[in-house]
Deep mutational scan, measured.
Amino acid sequence: DLSALRVEEVQNVINAMQKILECPICLELIKEPVSTKCDHIFCKFCMLKLLNQKKGPSQCPLCKNDITKRSLQESTRFSQLVEELLKIICAFQLDTGLEYANSYNFAKKENNSPEHLKDEVSIIQSMGYRNRAKRLLQSEPENPSLQETSLSVQLSNLGTVRTLRTKQRIQPQRTSVYIELGSDSSEDTVNKATYCSVGDQELLQITPQGTRDEISLDSAKKAACEFSETDVTNTEHHQPSNNDLNTTEKRAAERHPEKYQGSSVSNLHVEPCGTNTHASSLQHENSSLLLTKDRMNVEKAEF
């Protein structure tokens, strides 16, 4: 173990290094160091905050020279020094078990990766560091076993998940096959086929009936047209017969005018059967003409 005197000496050296690497504005270890034209180094955030307070150039807090945003430059070497100082402080805390008085939040800088452990060898070769390295080497064999167990647990979990997924996939297939086998029997399929065939026959029977009705309507229309044509021909046949009657009536009127007047009046009210309204109107006109002729003949006879 380190003596108290040596611990104090190391602590004083760390404090001196820390004062050199402090920012003059925030009085902390410089984060993202930036250098000016006057070779003074500050935190990048502190300098941008200072420049944004005034429009135009501002003055350096140490030498009062003008500073602009374009004049600022990043210093990589200074950032490396800060990183190495942080590593020294971490090693000091691990070796002594004491917390550094002016320690900052170094938890963000710590890294437990194997590459980081290899890099620590180049920091300080001390008894405390050696003991700590031995402890780490002793704890390393235990870690692979834990990793193997965790991997086995994960693989077993994956296997159970896969088996569950396969079961879920197989179950719908089985149910679907069961439904297909038990849903419709052979008799049901035959009945469905016969039902479809009967429906098709009914459709075939319905369509000819409609065509037959249309044919019957067409035949009825044709018969009505033929009947009207026969009526017209009958009226045409009746007209010459009426003319013959008129000639006979004229002759009778010349011989017996008194008797014919009474008979002509009675004939006005008689309509021949089986004739249309057109034929009756023609008869009325003929009878009126005959009456006028008879009157003329009677007057001539009187004179």
Rank of each mutant, 00 (worst) to 15 (best):
C46Y: 01
A301D: 15
C273H: 14
R132D: 02
D188I: 07
K134Q: 15
T76S: 07
T160C: 05
T277Y: 06
N12T: 04
I67K: 03
Q138I: 04
N267Q: 15
K55G: 07
Q80F: 05
Q138C: 05
L164V: 12
E285Y: 12
D66V: 10
V121L: 08
Q138M: 08
S281F: 14
R165Q: 08
L72R: 01
A253W: 05
S126M: 03
N267S: 15
Y260E: 07
S264R: 11
R169G: 13
T149Y: 00
I25Y: 00
K55N: 13
C225W: 15
D218H: 05
I88T: 02
S228F: 02
G128R: 14
L146V: 13
V232H: 04
L268F: 08
D218R: 05
S228G: 03
C23M: 02
Y100P: 09
D231Y: 01
P144N: 12
R6Y: 05
T233W: 15
S58L: 01
V82K: 07
H40A: 01
L282P: 10
P272Q: 05
C63V: 00
V265R: 06
G199L: 02
E229L: 14
L85T: 01
T166F: 02
L86R: 09
S75D: 15
S197G: 10
V198C: 05
S103I: 02
R174W: 12
R165T: 03
V190N: 14
S113A: 09
C26T: 01
N15R: 14
V121E: 04
V121N: 08
Y104L: 04
A133R: 08
A4T: 09
T277D: 03
D188R: 04
R162S: 14
N276L: 15
L137I: 12
F45L: 10
A193S: 13
Y129Q: 05
L164M: 09
P114T: 06
N157Y: 03
E254Y: 07
C90K: 12
P208T: 07
E249I: 03
Q125N: 10
A253R: 15
N112R: 12
D218A: 10
L27F: 01
L62F: 00
D184G: 11
P144V: 11
L151Y: 03
K37E: 05
V232E: 08
L155Y: 00
E83L: 03
Q18E: 15
K108R: 15
S241C: 08
R6A: 05
S3I: 05
R162L: 00
V161G: 13
R255G: 13
